[in-house]
Structures are given as C-alpha cells and as structure tokens.
Design a protein around this nucleic acid. Structure first.
Lengths: 223, 223
DNA sequence: ATCAACGAGATTGTTGACAAGATGTTCCGA
DNA sequence: TCGGAACATCTTGTCAACAATCTCGTTGAT
C-alpha cells in the first residue's frame, strides 16, 4: 500500500475503485471527478487516472466534457428501461442457445441454484439470493457460448448499478422474482429453447415494470 | 491541410481515418499500427494517435497488447456469426418498436426506400442498393427511438466491415436480399410488430447462412 | 545446420512541466 | 442590493524528453 501504483496497473485499479465506489453509493450521479484528487486518493499518477476515466467513459459510467472534466453520468428511468429492453433481447438469445447446448454439469448447477434460491427466499437470506441471482445470469450466458453477447451485456450493466441497488431493496421483491427465475431454470435445464426465451422475456418485462413504478415511487433520484 | 491536427481534434480524425482505411481494404487484419508512423502520416502527434487507438480498441477494431502496440483485430467467422446473432436480437427489438411508433413520414420514407430498392436491383445499381440498405437499417433504428440499442449496434458493426465487404460482393446477393428487405419494410410500415421482428430475424438468419458459406468459400481470409 | 546468447535499433510507456481554458471571488458602480 | 468586470485559482490538455521493453538480425558455439 505504500507503493505507488503506476501506469497500466493503476489504470485498472482506479477504474475498479470507482466502479466499486459507485456500487457502494459513495459516488452520486453528477459528481465531479477531479483527476489530481483521485490520483492522490488512490496513490497513482494523474496519467493513470486519466486513462481510467477514459475507460469508464467508454462504459458510459462517467461523462467527460472537454476542458471540464469527468462526472458520474446520470441515468434516467427511460434510459434504464431501454437498457433493460436491450438486456432482454440479448439474454433471450443467450437463454435460447443455452437451452440447446448447455452441458450436463451446467444443467445440474442450474437446478442446484434453483433449489438454493428457494431456500434463500424461505430463509429471508437476501444477500444469498442476490448472489445466486447473479450467478444464474452468468451461468446462462456462459452456457450459451455467446462471447459477444456476454461482452455487450457487461457493458450494458455498467450504468445500471444504481438502479439495481434501488430495485433490490423493494420489499417482497425476491418473492416476486423467484418463480420467474425458476421458470428460466426449468426451461434452460429442460432444454426448451422457446420456453427459455419466453421466461427471460417475462422476467425482464417485470423488471421494466418495477423500474417504471420506481420512477414515481418514494426513492426517486433527484438529478 | 498544412496545419497540424493536434490533440482532441486529431484524435477523432485519426480514428476515422483508420476506420476508413479498413473499409477501403488498405489495412488488413493483423497489421501493426505504429504510433509514430501514423502520427507522421496523418500529421498529428503521437499522443493523439495513442488516444485514437484506445478508442478503436474500445470498439474492438484494434487489439492493443501492452508493450507491443496495436494491430488490426482479426474477426473469425464464428465471431462474425455471433455478432450477427446479437445484431438480430437488437434489431428485432428495434423493428418491433418501430412498427408501433414510427411517424407517418417515417413510414412513407420506408415505402419510398422499398420502391427505390426494387428499382436499384432492376437496374443493377449496386452502390445505390447498398446505400439504401444502410439507410433502411438506420431508419428502422431511428424510428424505434431506442438510443441504447442504436449505440450497441454501432459498436457491433465496427469489427464487421471486412465481412460486409466480402458479403456484398457475392453475385446475386442483392436479388436474394431484396424480398427480405421488402418484408421488413411492409411489416414496419404496416404497423405489425411481430411480423417486423420475424422479417428481421429471417433476414439476419440468411446473412448468417451466407457468412457460414463464405467460410469455406473461395475468398477465405488468410490470417 | 541449429540454437542460444547478445546487442542495436525500434517502439511503447511514463513523467513532469507548461499552456490554455473554466470556475469562483472580490470589488466597484449604479 | 444587484450586476458585472477584473482577477486569482483550480483543472484539464498538450507536449517533449526520457525510461523501459521488445524485436530482430548477428554471431558464435555445439
């Protein structure tokens, strides 16, 4: 920690640190990111910070306006909906493919995740449920063999962290999404491509509905 | 032109020049891009070239390996197929939305494009047909109002230029794709979302088939 | 003839200083 | 009190030189 992270090393380090800070809520949309400050905080050089900010701009997490520096980009509800619609399109593709070509081990892990999710909801273990949820999505994409779609989906998720945060906190949300996740699992593990696509679509349509509802809800962001 | 393009201006200029050169076939996959050379050729500084290369790397057009510089990325047929599958997923989304919300002027322009395409194929005017084709895809996306999908599709197309080139040259290709394009136009202009999605899917499935066929064809790329 | 070690040249990575633009503050006049 | 002009400060953009690393041809030994 006394060592100064320099150049290429620091670049990724800073980018990850900022992503992390955003997830943790330490950074709010619109907030300025001053190069020299970040360099000091993270113990790197300005050059490294600069490149990290370029990366984050490419991911559309920050917005760089010339001569005025970088700020955390604000994502409107409408944009969040559009992002989710794109996710839906791509994840349907992945689910379809995954249903057709997943290995036996992958299908087994899917079923295991389903059982664990049931248990987690029953126990009220929300952290566990959230982790399983993430693993489920990853596994479907992995099983689909769609590397290109995987990269696209990763990019898509960058600016969404703030919303995911808000959504997961809604009371009763796990109980509502559980059957949708189980339907995805059944269809993919059961090798039914069309049902898999439909299940994913249904799940994400519901997420979109929740997003729209959150727009008028209690915790609407002030931007 | 005697002026030296510096910094931010040169950055975009160089990036565009390289994209252009790739389309024109002046750059082949695997080719090294030496910073100082490009700086001289385009009359900019090394810094500008460096940043341009970063941008192109984010678009996955070039590949940067640390301490070894940038090369034009080679896209395998398998990857081209996956890219097209993603395109299909996203363009189906756009077509569906466009069918539902396009303005009257947009529907009229679609029909006009359809008529012009027919004419272009009849005349053997392939450049015209190609331009109309591009405009058609743009217009559908524009009419869909899906900004996020538009950006994703732009990104997706970056690495595909080489393949588009090869595909367009196949004899009889326009005659084959014309009815598919007309089907898309009819469905979108006719406000039938599901038919629009099906038409787009059918069109891109055919493109994928052509891609696969080109893999074993005469002009397989030497990488 | 093959291979490994070597070294010169080429190429990228990094830094620090400076230039140029944006922001915020103070002070003056109405 | 308000508006705005001049100024001070902060911040980003740019560059040129230097350092670190890689590539590739050469040489020499086996």
């Amino acid at each position: 920690m006394t060592e100064k992270l320099t150049g290429a090393a620091g670049r990724e380090y800073v980018a990850n640190a900022i992503r992390q800070a955003l997830r943790a809520g330490d950074l709010v949309p619109g907030q300025r990111l001053v190069e020299l400050d970040l360099a000091e905080v993270y113990g790197t050089t300005r050059g490294a910070v600069r490149e990290a900010l370029q990366d984050l701009a490419a991911e559309e997490i920050v917005e760089i306006v010339p001569r005025r520096g970088a700020r955390i980009r604000a994502v409107s509800v409408e944009e969040a909906v559009q992002i989710t619609e794109c996710r839906s399109a791509l994840e349907q593709l992945c689910a379809r493919k995954a249903a057709g070509r997943a290995s036996d081990e992958q299908r087994a892990e899917l079923r295991r995740i389903g059982a664990d999710m049931r248990q987690a909801v029953a126990d009220g273990a929300w952290d566990t449920y959230s982790a399983l949820n993430q693993r489920l999505h990853e596994l479907v994409i992995e099983a689909s063999g769609q590397e290109v779609a995987r990269r696209q989906l990763e990019r898509l998720n960058g600016p969404m962290v703030r919303f995911q945060f808000r959504l997961a906190l809604r009371p009763g949300r796990p109980a509502q999404s559980l059957p949708q996740h189980l339907a995805i699992i059944d269809a993919v593990a059961g090798a039914d491509p069309e049902a898999a696509a439909r299940a994913v679509a249904a799940h994400l349509d519901d997420v979109i509905e929740q997003l729209r509802a959150s727009a008028t809800g209690a915790s609407a962001p002030r931007v």
